[in-house]
Write a protein that binds this DNA or RNA. Structure first.
Lengths: 279, 279
DNA sequence: CGGTATTTTGAGTATCGTCAAGGCCAGTGG
DNA sequence: CCACTGGCCTTGACGATACTCAAAATACCG
């Protein structure tokens, strides 16, 4: 398992049937935590303390980092790659409740068990911090505590934004919302946004149809149909199964049932400003 | 607006059309923050500091506490009543992304604007703490910081649990999930759970059909049909529009597509153990 | 070039959204 | 005390959408 698709690495499998555990590789690499912008602003002594309890661990696509019900032994910060948070239902349905990218934090501190399984959607590198010393440091460093607090509050907002996407009554609208979500949420992730022809933007969907269906509360067939329906509308062009060119941001926004108060200004402007930064 | 229905107080209106703002009543009451269990464990000096910057404000059902886009001037802790977090879409759809009850915290600290409107779903009492002094206290008191952090992490887990409910492909399943969610999430809230006949449990649904539809990503008519479908199955009895007797927990769980790993043990046991505590 | 997994398409059925009308309950005013 | 009013909940009918099962087409891998 864990079959990468050449230039388009993907998750191990839509149904994660071959998922394995804890076959990670602990490296002796330096933990250059300062590559995470939020952490770079921490006082040097706090950062040093974190580095001293930190290890980089690598997992392959499909591996399970944490299982639901675990009392996680480490707090994690994504260094590269994409993780998916999910829960498996008794009927076999797998619901994805979040995707985590570079700079995102996961794991529990001071409190109960992990409620959701954390799996590698692609090959990933994780900064891992042992739980107990990290908790102690949190109590000693208000600055770190603040960073973690802000991070989790943002995560909460994003979870709710995602909820709005998932609650859209039409799958077509959910998909439109997800594509736009990718543009903002994953703008900083390598290889997700690319300059298309002219004013167009290319989005690489980092997960397969199966995961997409599990994320949006529907089935792969319906995803496929809805995607081609968007293409028929002229809102997008499907260049490859996993590569979408956005032609009409307004149409996607309208399908997604855009929220009031466009605090962000024009979506398209935002995306374009972000897109070329990574390039 | 804000019409209470005698013994069944409800939200001001399903569509919140008569929503007003800031007509709250600031009282001179003592802020007995220690009635919130998590806060009661704080050091006395931290608690005193909080009390000194705290005021109780009361809002009527339907009033808006915070609007999306606001830079909230206060951090809030619910003392009594139910708040709804929601976003209004351009097409008029209102999506509810969370309900907050006694002990729940809301508002932003150290960071950006409020992303979701906060409205009173019932008459509410709120402990309000001015933002700046509260932020300063957070930096000085690791214990308080920890309480807030744990609270938000729990809120994140609950948001994701809710997402799983909302992502259920059938409305009947979403409704079943919501009813079970009420049992755990609102178990501690006055008047939500009551002893039914024999082994049955009565659940008072604290929001109207319209809010329920907005919460579950569907329409009031469909909610009504799904609810009666559950009743026809024998899983529940509709005693009043807002009072549900649960007859068959297993059937509801099955409809909801229960998650794997019943960490909680029997749902029914859990509910019963919680239910009579309040009585 | 074949094998495998993924994606797409097709047909039939179930579910849901929509529009419209009727019913129930509480509060109001005669 | 009773009819009236307004809000909410329910029911009905019909078209649109999505799920299911099955099979074909495509992309990817060695």
């Amino acid at each position: 398992m864990a079959m990468d698709r050449g230039i388009h690495p993907r998750n191990g499998s839509g149904d994660s049937d071959g998922a394995t555990r804890d076959q990670d590789i602990v490296t002796g690499d330096v933990c250059n935590l300062e590559i995470i912008p939020q952490l770079a602003r921490l006082p040097a002594e706090t950062l040093d303390a974190m580095k001293s309890m930190c290890a980089i661990r690598r997992f392959r696509a499909g591996q399970i980092l944490l299982d639901a019900g675990d009392q996680p032994e480490f707090f994690g910060i994504v260094r590269s790659g994409i993780l998916r948070l999910q829960k498996t239902m008794l009927d076999g349905r797998q619901q994805i409740v979040g995707l985590m990218v570079e700079g995102d934090m996961f794991g529990k501190v001071f409190d109960g068990p992990q409620q959701f399984a954390v799996e590698a959607a692609t090959d990933v590198e994780i900064f891992t911090l042992l739980r107990k010393p990290f908790e102690d440091l949190l109590l000693r460093s208000p600055e770190l505590d603040q960073v973690v607090l802000v991070n989790i509050m943002n995560e909460l907002d994003r979870a709710r934004d995602w909820m709005i996407i998932v609650a859209n009554p039409r799958v077509k609208g959910r998909l439109a919302g997800f594509i736009l979500f990718c543009c903002t949420r994953f703008a900083s992730v390598h290889d997700v946004l690319q300059q298309g022809a002219g004013s167009a933007v290319d989005v690489r969907i980092p997960i397969g149809r199966s995961d997409l269906a599990n994320s949006l509360g529907t089935r792969p067939e319906t995803i496929s149909r809805a995607l081609h329906a968007l293409a028929d509308d002229g809102s997008i062009v499907i260049k490859r199964p996993d590569l979408i060119e956005i032609c009409d941001f307004a149409a996607l926004g309208s399908e997604a049932g855009e929220e009031e108060l466009p605090t962000h200004g024009s979506f398209k402007e935002l995306v374009r400003s972000l897109a070329w930064r990574a390039a």
